[in-house]
Design a binder for these strands. Structure first.
Lengths: 214, 214
DNA sequence: AGGATTATTTGCGAAATGGTACAAAAAGGA
DNA sequence: TCCTTTTTGTACCATTTCGCAAATAATCCT
């Protein structure tokens, strides 16, 4: 029988070979959607970005909406990899959050001030498309849970005040990510975004409102 | 000479009278842009919403982008009225913030889960339109300043710890507004949004991380 | 009454958009 | 070699989109 997961034993597919890599095509498509949003991106734009003609895009990914949803999932999966990387050596909360936000900012500023793909584009579509709305809602709840869980761990390890409320701080940690996403897209300078990151970390980690030096 | 500002002495305008009120038309236009975003809203949609034919829309407001920018300004002006109303009787910071966020949520949920007009639609356009980006950046800085200023006042009045940092807390207060805007648009239930408001207020006003009831 | 001014209406045009049918290309298998 | 399968390419379609020209309507002014 066919061995799944072993690339070198994959049987030769009949028919003409694909001229594209699905993951690479999704990443290319996301790049153009990231700039102009869903409605502002045409099939010609997507075709040019992926190097695939329109019938090929349809055959590979379905219609425009299907493709967009797949790019959102692709972005979510890539973002999770980044989040997990921040946990690699089980760092203190302050270090974890700094890494997390810095990684996010790298992503949000990688190709000019594009901000977060999900918030920058899916928020607009969410009001008129239930599938996109569900994706966005899920995405936010996942972020809440991730950050709240890290804050709980930190409190249990004595890094936070005993009466710190992880749910409340988790909300604020997610709110920080969201505001960074929008501010990055609005072109605010990296220096301001860094200041915001440091401020948020100080508040969340218990140096509330202290005037902290870098 | 003509008396400006006195409506009853305004001279009769020559020519055919207008069949629309500019402010009402802007509000109607904003309603449709609010749902589908800038690129997802057609001139036919705007025409139907405002009751004005397309040439009239062009004559009154300019092209589609001009109209959109005018609706953003209209929304900004209306929002400022709401913010000032929260200040009417110079309340303590906790009361002010509660009012501010509650008013925002009323606006964000007034016609189903539409969220904030500016963040829900302008963020997407910002990446490809410098005018919209500038509007969004300005808008966020104005909110920062407003909230930071209120926090400074509260600290001066002894409502906050003496070492509270208004700039840091101001950022978090704005971040809270932004996350509410996105969550509302993503259809998260009002109950969750209320919980987030209460959590943020507790952290900002100095009951950091306490597990608060109701 | 006629002219000037301003607003609305009708109809149109060029271009763009999302999607599809079908032929051709490129492979595996008998 | 021929058949089957999968993918790509070409051409096309119906509809939508944004913007505009010109005629008409509704007012004020002389």
């Amino acid at each position: 029988m066919v061995q799944k997961g072993a690339k070198e034993t994959e049987p030769k597919r009949r028919g003409r070979p694909r001229g594209y890599d699905p993951q690479a095509a999704l990443a290319r498509a996301a790049e153009v959607f990231w700039k102009a949003g869903y409605a502002g991106t045409s099939l010609d734009d997507l075709s040019a970005a992926t190097g695939m003609n329109r019938p090929s895009l349809y055959a590979a990914f379905g219609d425009k909406r299907d493709l967009y949803l797949k790019t959102l999932e692709h972005y979510r999966d890539e973002s999770r990899v980044l989040a997990r990387a921040a946990l690699a050596d089980d760092p203190p909360l302050r270090v974890l959050l700094k890494r997390f936000y810095d990684k996010a900012l790298e992503l949000y500023l990688a190709d000019g001030p594009r901000g977060c793909y999900s918030i920058g584009t899916a928020a607009t579509v969410a009001a008129v498309d239930d599938g996109v709305r569900a994706f966005l809602a899920d995405s936010m709840r996942t972020t809440d849970s991730f950050l709240t869980h890290q804050i709980e761990k930190a409190r249990a390890r004595g890094e936070l005040a005993r009466d710190a409320d992880p749910a409340a701080l988790g909300y604020l940690a997610t709110a920080t990510l969201h505001t960074l996403a929008i501010r990055a897209r609005a072109g605010l300078p990296r220096k301001e975004l860094n200041a915001l990151v440091n401020a948020a970390i100080d508040v969340i980690c218990g140096k509330q409102g202290r005037r902290g030096g870098a």
